[in-house]
Design a protein around this nucleic acid. Structure first.
Length: 427
RNA sequence: GCGGGCGUAGUCCAGCCCGGUUCAAGACGCCUCCCUGUCACGGAGGAGAUCACGGGUUCAAAUCCCGUCGCCCGCGCCA
């Protein structure tokens, strides 16, 4: 008999069918047994009026009659006639996958990742992530961006600093990319508009709920901009369209977390960093420390301000200080202490960083000198700027952080299948 | 790196402050039995913990002290 997918059962009312899937739960009432069976399209209840020898977790093939059943919360069920174990669970599960909530501590959730991922509510995170990635690809292509994949094994650190992983590369030393920055800029000189979805690696030993050492960055870079507001407008438009797609296609998954996805304003509020400092002080009586651009408390307050003042979950903070920004960021013409750099804060957490980049060779070299950065290993990047790079800018967007914030997950690690942090290299 | 916290059955946890009838309680899961409409099914019974490890204080330590190991969080840095 041919397998019928669970979401197709309603079309087979009254017919004898066969499904394949995993037993999520079993309720034994003596002479009647209820099974909840899951395949990749959904879940359904199967009822047997006899004793059956199966365990929760088994992969099974079930033959039975599809029928309408108002007594079942699914509205439909299968009157089971025959059940066959395709693959058996040979050990007790370490926790209860049948409950609505898994209720595990983070280390347990991640240690038993191969099993915790089977829980519908955990799966929902990654189904939403799937929609999110598809949305990004779709919208970016429609905006004329070409998808590129740039190397992650690099000969030199992208942006200086010590936060890159060193690896052995035959007889040389290499590093893992902590950003596609150089390559995506170079590609502006080729395709004008490019985007990338790729792994980035950061060797920072951070211990927070919003950092990991390997994450997926959604990058973009676009040429012939008139100023960095062109980049902000593009990002605004892209986010709005993606969030609408997630709302439409991911409703069943959002519902599992009781989340109504944020409305993205047509024009997300934009506030200068210097303004945010004043607002934090005057409105919330908090002083953002002078030795940083903005601290996490400052970001939370910026998010709070956006909600209270503009009823927006999003806010752009612009004009980050020159001394805090990397050498390729364009300095403000109006105020040399500031740059044309911005962050996007979503629900009080930074999820995107972007800027207009310096596009002339001369300015780039001058800025490097001022920042005391040696060109060693990045000659290939600098060379490009001798050959007429158009004015351009772009962003790096943390994909997992976005999912974390959409679902309000307590840790970014819940939004990654197999997260890598300071303490975790397996599974 | 600095600061704070945690470690008790397979899982989630109570007990720790104020050491002693609690030979560590409960819930979920597991095993046995009962139940023909459950949907977090219900009911009865049962097994499962050298209280992270090592040392100390004490008549007595899960509980107080010291050390070790493991982990989590905040900050820094950033997406």
């Amino acid at each position: 008999m041919e397998r019928i997918l669970i979401n197709q059962i309603e079309k087979k009312e009254g017919q004898k069918i066969m499904i394949k899937g995993r037993i999520l739960n079993m309720r034994n009432l003596g002479n009647v047994v209820f099974l909840i069976v899951q395949d990749y399209t959904g879940t359904i209840q199967v009822v047997f009026a006899k004793i059956i020898e199966v365990k929760i977790g088994d992969s099974v093939a079930i033959e039975g009659i599809a029928k309408k059943e108002p007594r079942s919360k699914y509205g439909f069920e299968i009157q089971g006639e025959n059940i066959k174990i395709i693959s058996a669970t040979v050990e007790d599960l370490p926790f209860d996958l049948a409950k609505n909530d898994l209720n595990l501590n983070l280390p347990t959730l991640l240690d038993y990742r191969t099993l915790s991922l089977r829980h519908p509510k955990v799966q929902a995170i990654f189904k939403l992530y799937d929609i999110f990635l598809k949305g990004y690809e779709t919208v970016m292509r429609e905006e004329g961006f070409t998808e590129v994949k740039t190397p992650k094994i690099l000969g030199a650190a992208t942006e200086g600093g010590a936060n890159f992983f060193k690896i052995k590369y035959f007889d040389k030393e290499a590093t893992l990319a902590q950003s596609p920055q150089f390559y995506k800029q170079i590609m502006v000189g080729v395709f004008e508009r490019v985007f990338e979805i790729g792994s980035t690696f950061r060797a920072e030993p951070h211990f927070t709920t919003r950092h990991v050492n390997e994450y997926i960055s959604l990058d973009a870079e676009m040429g012939y901009i008139k100023d960095f507001y062109d980049v902000i407008e593009m990002l605004n438009k892209v986010i709005k369209r993606i969030f609408l797609m997630i709302e439409k296609e991911g409703k069943q998954y959002l519902d599992m977390y009781n989340i109504k996805i944020s409305e993205v304003p047509d024009s997300i509020p934009r506030v200068k960093l210097s303004e945010i400092r004043k607002i934090a002080k005057e409105k919330y009586n908090y002083s953002i420390p002078d030795d940083t651009d903005i601290d996490p408390e400052g970001e939370r307050l910026a998010g709070k301000y956006a909600k209270e003042e503009f009823n927006s979950d999003f806010i752009f903070i612009t004009h980050y200080p020159w001394k805090e920004k990397p050498f390729y960021t364009m300095q403000s013409k109006e105020n040399p202490e500031e740059t044309y750099g911005f962050d996007l804060i979503y629900k009080g957490l930074e999820i995107v960083t972007g800027s207009q980049r310096i596009h002339t060779y001369k300015e780039l070299i001058e800025n490097m000198k001022k920042k005391k950065i040696k060109p060693n290993g990045m000659e290939f990047y600098l060379e490009t700027f001798k050959f007429a790079m158009p004015p351009h800018g772009g962003w790096g967007w943390g994909s997992e952080r976005t999912i974390q914030q959409i679902l309000e997950l307590p840790s970014i690690k819940e939004a990654i299948l197999f997260p890598r942090d300071v303490k975790r290299l397996v599974p």
